[in-house]
């Protein structure tokens, strides 16, 4: 017992000494993180329980802001749309990078060229991309896409102005811009696979689909899982694409929760309600992440 204490004492003493040095090294980033991330984050939660003028706290009102935002005529539409964005982004956007990465991995000539080409849309500022696609999707016969389709004898479409198509089309533009970066991540994952596995499979007579299914997919499974949750988190916060392309319209067909935040904060200068919506968004995301982790863990067990 005594000797155990001795050891403990010694180790704690040593640890404290090292701790101090470690903490001092960490301090600048701790301070910066708290200044730029954690404090604003907590302040935002704090603010959501108050009435404020600008950013000056005026009165504590408890959950009143939350009650108000749930009754906002746009809230339900924004919530459902946000789920719709997320779903469509999984349907349209999730497999595109995987497929592109597999194809890219098989290409022998001009590999660098294609790799750069796939990443290029990512380099364009997001707002510019949204504006460009709005231009492409312009309805009637002056829209770019409609002009192209006219050559094939297809009547002009209204594209974004069709409430049923608005969200899928916005997701297409988001995929166009974002898929490249994800593709590169998958590509890195694919190149980490031991080529001998493929050779062995080929010798055993596995065709290309079998090789993909039994070797490629299991090897990028973990990566795909992480990217899936990251994608959900990112798309759940979709803001500038609908803001620029449709301003949430037509008739709220594409308004997102983040856009509601934007409206409260920058159109009405009502920061507490903007914070309340943000808190709701983060609660949803925390819940999803929790649920996802639980499912994955059960599956693995």
């Amino acid at each position: 017992m005594n000797s155990f204490n001795k050891v403990l004492n010694k180790s704690t003493k040593m640890l404290t000494k090292r701790d101090i040095a470690g903490l001092i090294i960490m301090l600048p980033s701790l301070v910066l993180f708290s200044f730029f991330v954690w404090v604003p984050l907590l302040e935002s939660v704090h603010l959501s329980f108050y009435i404020a003028h600008g950013m000056r706290f005026i009165k504590f009102v408890g959950l009143e802001n939350y009650a108000t935002i749930f009754k906002d005529p746009d809230f339900m539409a924004a919530l459902l749309n946000t789920f719709s964005y997320t779903l469509w982004s999984l349907v349209i956007g999730f497999f595109v990078p995987i497929i592109m990465a597999i194809i890219l991995n098989e290409i022998i000539h001009f590999k660098g060229f294609f790799r750069v080409g796939i990443y290029l849309p990512n380099v364009i500022p997001g707002l510019a991309v949204a504006m460009m696609w709005r231009f492409i999707f312009k309805p009637s016969d002056t829209g770019m896409l409609n002009i192209i389709l006219k050559n094939f004898g297809i009547q002009p479409q209204v594209w974004l102005a069709d409430p049923k198509l608005t969200i899928p089309l916005i997701v297409v533009t988001m995929t166009w811009r974002g898929a490249g970066a994800t593709t590169l991540l998958y590509l890195a994952g694919l190149q980490g696979i031991d080529p001998e596995l493929y050779e062995a499979a080929a010798i055993d007579g596995a065709n290309i689909w079998k090789r993909i299914w039994h070797i490629t997919v299991p090897n990028i499974y973990n990566l795909a899982r992480t990217l899936l949750i990251l994608q959900i988190i990112a798309v759940f916060q979709v803001l500038y694409e609908p803001l620029v392309m449709t301003n949430g319209g037509p008739n709220n067909a594409s308004i997102s929760l983040m856009q509601l935040v934007y409206k409260y904060a920058f159109e009405k200068f009502d920061y507490p309600k903007a914070s309340a919506v943000s808190v709701v968004i983060s609660l949803f995301l925390i819940f999803f992440t929790f649920l996802y982790n639980k499912i994955i863990r059960e599956k693995e067990m």
Binding site: V158, A161, P163, G249, P250, N251, N252
Partner: peptide
């Protein structure tokens, strides 16, 4: 505005 958007689309 929302109604206008609906009737013209």
């Amino acid at each position: 505005t929302k109604v206008i958007q609906a009737v013209i689309t």
